[in-house]
Design a protein around this nucleic acid. Structure first.
Lengths: 235, 235
DNA sequence: TTGCGTATTATTGTATACAATCTGTATAAA
DNA sequence: TTTATACAGATTGTATACAATAATACGCAA
């Protein structure tokens, strides 16, 4: 009855287990728990009103998601992201977003195409009004639509993972008005290429979009990472 | 002291938790547990001589690895892999292996270069003798060396995941003598390109290597998947 | 026989108890 | 003062007990 997802996310966001998992995940992504901070099972359990068991299970999943690192018999620590990690992710993403856009040309549904088009128009409207929050929201949504449109559970899951991952360090990327206009432009190009089913162009512009986003982020120092995670031990 | 891995694998393969996780993982990859088979916590716990708790935690991780799907209050089921999934993975891998080879040009250590060269020579030797097991082993190891040589924890982890994933369905890919010779040839080309630090060529041949492997697998029907995971419900 | 409703059983979800391990401190010896 | 050691506390690892849920079997009526 249910389709068999391959890389499946946590099955039910509304089960208790799912709630615990998502809450901790949110808290890490939002920055409530800082990098390298130790997460105590009992403390988090009490905060959420549950015992250690569901917390531990959530920890195991968060470890595989890469958000925390569990050292046996010691504890769970929020992972640090280095500048190189971010750079690597953007390079990987640039390839995969290109592939995603290519596949979307063949598999996008009319509904998804409509939403993508609407997204671009809305983003341009909010850009003209300087509505930063809405723009960030629309930017995220644009990519989600794209991921869903490629009609590949594998690729969609992968890209959503990476997307969430970089959100931890990409706090204010779109803050610059200049970049947000450029970004909207690039979204429009991607959208149009997909609409015209021009696979090569779609792949190329989606690829370039990531490269541009990355370079902007780095150029403006909008990426908060620790390059020397353990001061005093190495490098 | 320890470096902070981003996408970290299960931390300690030799801890009890790690052992349970790896054992179940092995059993799925080896085919002991068939696709869509339900995994019972107590049964597996008894088999491994542990209680449900470690088994459950292993399940949570296996779910995120994509090997099983957990339906709340129902059970854990070995995921099915469709032909499309395999196809998608190979397309994704072809891009990422290309990137990996490119990065390896810059970051490979002399020791890794030596091992890769040795691997190629050994593989050719065993090919001439018809030693199938050793050839499969060397083939897997070649890719692992490549993944490690790119010096990117992110990419290495991703590719190792995918690699293990397709091993589930790619049982006898190298069985054909013709393909194994071609594969060795391609490995040699990758190795030589990296040795000469020719990034463009390295990326291209690594990319093509995946495409060829995929086409061979599909052409010969060496991929065992279920395309209709739930007979009678849809399609 | 078939269909429905209830009871029983099996299995998962959660909490708790206990064991093992690690960390930090205090004390004593060099 | 420094170092080593032993103890105490905290924290994680595992097992078990109990609760909730789903699957099954059974009985009864149509």
């Amino acid at each position: 009855m249910e389709n068999y997802d391959v890389k499946s996310e946590v099955t039910d966001k509304f089960s208790l287990r799912g709630r615990v998992f998502n809450k901790i995940r949110e808290d890490i992504l939002s920055g409530k728990y800082k990098e390298h901070e130790e997460l105590k099972e009992v403390a988090i359990g009490e905060e959420l009103g549950v015992s250690r068991t569901p917390v531990r299970e959530a920890f195991r999943q968060l470890e595989l998601e890469g958000l925390i690192k569990i050292i046996p018999n010691k504890g769970a620590y929020v992972t640090g992201i280095t500048t190189k990690d971010v750079q690597d992710i953007y390079m990987i993403r640039s390839l995969l977003e290109g592939l995603c856009a290519r596949w979307a040309c063949d598999h996008i549904t009319p509904e998804q195409m409509d939403e993508m088009e609407e997204n671009v128009y809305l983003a341009e409207f909010h850009a003209s009004k300087g509505h930063l929050d809405q723009m960030a929201e629309l930017d995220n949504r644009f990519h989600d639509i794209l991921y869903e449109a490629c009609d590949s559970k594998m690729l969609e899951h992968l890209l959503k993972d990476f997307h969430a991952y970089v959100l931890r360090v990409r706090k204010k990327t779109l803050a610059s008005e200049q970049r947000s206009n450029a970004s909207n432009n690039e979204h429009r190009k991607i959208m149009e290429a997909i609409k015209e089913k021009d696979k090569d162009r779609a792949e190329k512009v989606a690829h370039q979009h990531m490269i541009n986003a990355y370079e902007n982020m780095m150029k403006n120092g909008l990426c908060e990472t620790y390059d020397a995670p353990d001061p005093g031990s190495e490098q």
